[in-house]
Amino acid sequence: MNLLYEDLGYFDLTTHGLGIGEKQATMSFAPKGEVILCGVDEVLKVMRELNIEHKFHKRDGDCVEGKEIILECKGDAASLHKAWKISQNIFEYMSGIATYTNSLVVKAREINPKISVATTRKNFPGSKELMLKSVMAGGGVIHRMGLYDSILVFEQHLNFFNTKEELESAFTKLKYEFLEKKIAVEVEDYKDACYFASLGADILQCEKMEYATLKKCVTLKEHYPHLLLSATGGIHESNIEEFAKCGVDFIVTSSPYHAKPLDIKVTIKESL
């Protein structure tokens, strides 16, 4: 994906029309408020592609205070204006996700220091790499990158089995065919949680459960010590602490993908 060309196209009509393209200038980036920074690798590619002299003062995952300089650049005005907005957008969107994710992690770990906050594969199509990198910069982990990296049984899979015997045979085959993989099953109530725990599920993904039901499902760990449980569905910044209190091993959420971009101020000045 050529992020630069997406914005640049063939010409920068404004800079060309004003006749300022050959003037030498400086450009700097700084957040207006505190952020968890993300987007350094992507902006670095932009700088290199345009042969802009640059110096990064921060790395992905750094906590950056308001007005702290992230990046300083030198070059001709034409190149700096080409790099300006795409670089700003990268920093603002990716840092927004990283900062929001970090807030979730901090809130959850104040309750349970060992809990993980993981994100789903419900990212905006075409943006997976950028979104996942942002989540990781914020201290989150990846629940599923796609269909290829993990096994998760949904109701949509179970609908293809007409009898319990047929399902149990297929489930046993699945476990032995993929011995190195943990088998996760999405469950919506305590009855299903008990059933799939008894079949040998490694992970129960508890979907949109009420707190009391979720806490009851956690008690299954007493009978199945290997069992891991996650809470998922509708979890965000304002309620994650409640879910962390119930004893699940990790929390699965898509909410970081909807995080608001954060303001990164860009200053461009002619070199005197």
Rank of each mutant, 00 (worst) to 15 (best):
K107L: 13
Q205D: 10
G33L: 14
A98M: 13
L229F: 07
L50T: 02
E110H: 11
V252W: 05
K133G: 07
H143R: 10
K122N: 05
G21D: 14
E168L: 08
M209L: 02
Y100F: 07
E42F: 06
A259H: 02
T267E: 00
R144K: 00
V105T: 10
R121K: 00
A77S: 14
T120L: 06
E222C: 12
V218C: 06
A201I: 09
R109N: 15
D189R: 07
D41I: 12
F160I: 04
V141C: 01
G9N: 08
T26M: 03
K67M: 02
L147I: 13
K208S: 01
I142W: 07
S79H: 03
F11T: 14
S254T: 06
S116A: 10
I90E: 07
N239L: 07
D7S: 12
A259D: 02
S198R: 12
T15R: 11
L199M: 07
I251E: 06
F29L: 04
H258N: 14
V153R: 10
A78L: 13
I90A: 06
K133C: 02
E210D: 05
K191M: 11
M47A: 12
P225M: 15
F250W: 13
K55R: 03
G33H: 15
I20T: 12
S169T: 15
T267Q: 01
K23V: 09
A193E: 02
H258R: 14
E237I: 13
A118N: 00
V266P: 10
A184W: 03
H258A: 15
I36G: 05
I151M: 09
E188N: 03
S150N: 09
F91P: 08
E241S: 15
G140K: 02
L80Q: 03
G200Y: 05
A83M: 09
V153N: 08
A244K: 14
E168C: 02
G66V: 12
M1I: 11
S28Y: 01
H223C: 09
G247H: 02
E165L: 11
G19A: 14
E180D: 01
I235F: 06
A118R: 09
L204F: 11
N239F: 09
K182L: 00
E166M: 12
M209H: 01
S134C: 04
T14R: 15
D189K: 10
N102I: 00
C217D: 00
A137V: 04
T101D: 06
A137Q: 01
L227N: 03
Y195D: 11
E165R: 13
E92C: 11
H81E: 10
I111N: 06
S127P: 10
L44S: 09
K260P: 11
E168T: 05
E270S: 12
H54Q: 08
V218S: 00
T99M: 06
S134W: 01
E42A: 08
F11N: 14
N2K: 09
K128A: 10
E168R: 01
Q205F: 04
R109P: 12
G234M: 08
V218M: 02
K23Y: 09
S271E: 06
V135Y: 11
G146N: 04
K128F: 05
I52C: 05
H81T: 10
I235V: 03
D60W: 00
N162K: 15
G138R: 04
D149A: 03
Q205L: 01
A184F: 07
C217K: 03
I52V: 06
N162G: 14
F196W: 10
A244D: 13
H16G: 13
N51S: 07
V185M: 08
E188M: 00
M27K: 04
N112I: 11
L229Q: 08
T219Y: 03
